[in-house]
Design a protein around this nucleic acid. Sequence first.
DNA 1: GTCTATAGCCAGATAGAC
DNA 2: GTCTATCTGGCTATAGAC
Lengths: 203, 203
Amino acid sequence: MARKSFKEQMLQAREAAIVSSVNRLLAEKGFDAMTVDEVAADVGIAKASLYKHFSSKEALAAAAMIRLLDQALAFIATLEHHPTARAVDHLRAVARWSMQVQLAGEMPSLPSQNSALRAALTSNQVYLQRLMDVSEKLGAWIVSAQEAGHLNRKLPPEIVLYTLFARACDPVLGLLKLSGQHSDESIIELLLSTCFDGLSGGA
Amino acid sequence: MARKSFKEQMLQAREAAIVSSVNRLLAEKGFDAMTVDEVAADVGIAKASLYKHFSSKEALAAAAMIRLLDQALAFIATLEHHPTARAVDHLRAVARWSMQVQLAGEMPSLPSQNSALRAALTSNQVYLQRLMDVSEKLGAWIVSAQEAGHLNRKLPPEIVLYTLFARACDPVLGLLKLSGQHSDESIIELLLSTCFDGLSGGA
DNA sequence: GTCTATAGCCAGATAGAC
DNA sequence: GTCTATCTGGCTATAGAC
């Protein structure tokens, strides 16, 4: 692609800074509690300037979600360079990665009930495309792992996919971290165990 | 206890009606999207009258949570009349019950980040007591099931408890219901399977 | 594109008569 | 305890000067 002009680079850098702030605030307080004033203050610009870049609060959240999905796709791409590994190991690695993001306080949390937000997301073509990209990558691995007998063949792939997405923002992680009884790494190992091996754990 | 006067019965009946409306609206829209005006309209009284019964929106949510925990304790009590069953079966039954509540659209959903709400709940002695009651009942079963080898002995009981609470409001259930591919009963069986047996499913 | 200032709205909570 | 009417504050979004 053509080389960006200086002005365009500046603009993209500023928008990246905005999305970064939004991402952190979404992870920290959630969409409803986050205010546009806070975002502007965190970035260090006036609120009206924010609206020159993003047309609404919902658009800010969508941008943060798109960035997250892009990061996930980048991580998935690194796994694809190891074709010898088992598909189930790839899935486990993705689950571990998402838990690490959450532990680092960088997992944006959106309320599933907010209708204005849902409307903005479901009408955002870029977001929908990224979501489909991730789903297809994971879906292929899920089917492979089931064929290899490493995942329960009786589970519809759909359920496995939804479960992996849900575990990425599982409140159990926050509760465990709050209790302070375990290290970050052991929290992740325990949750990976309950996710893939269940509470029974092969008993 | 002394027999309630007619007035007291009326008052309790009205408050029960309020809490019932709150519970349904919390399940339907979540705490943030629910407005006190809606609650008043649903009950059929004026908003100011609501505030004669409950001092704040947070108090309404707390009352709904207390009712839910009371229902859980009642269900747990019915299980205790079957002393021959295994502890792990009791836990599975409780998990199934909570999923049925959620499928019925009666599981109140509260944002874990709302600070005002958290403050109201953690300073509500009745709520905390009920939460401890449920936790102790389940905790005893968890330890028993681990000793019997029916639950993974390597998992701290705390994690099992948190996981059961989290599965009661697992968003996977809503996603599956939305897809319309499965019956309510098969959704519950699949989620119980992923919860206790994991995605690997003993593969 | 950035700013200050403000419009417009909505929701939680209250006043005060009955 | 119930009502109508209102207050109050905070938030999204915008106007308009520079």
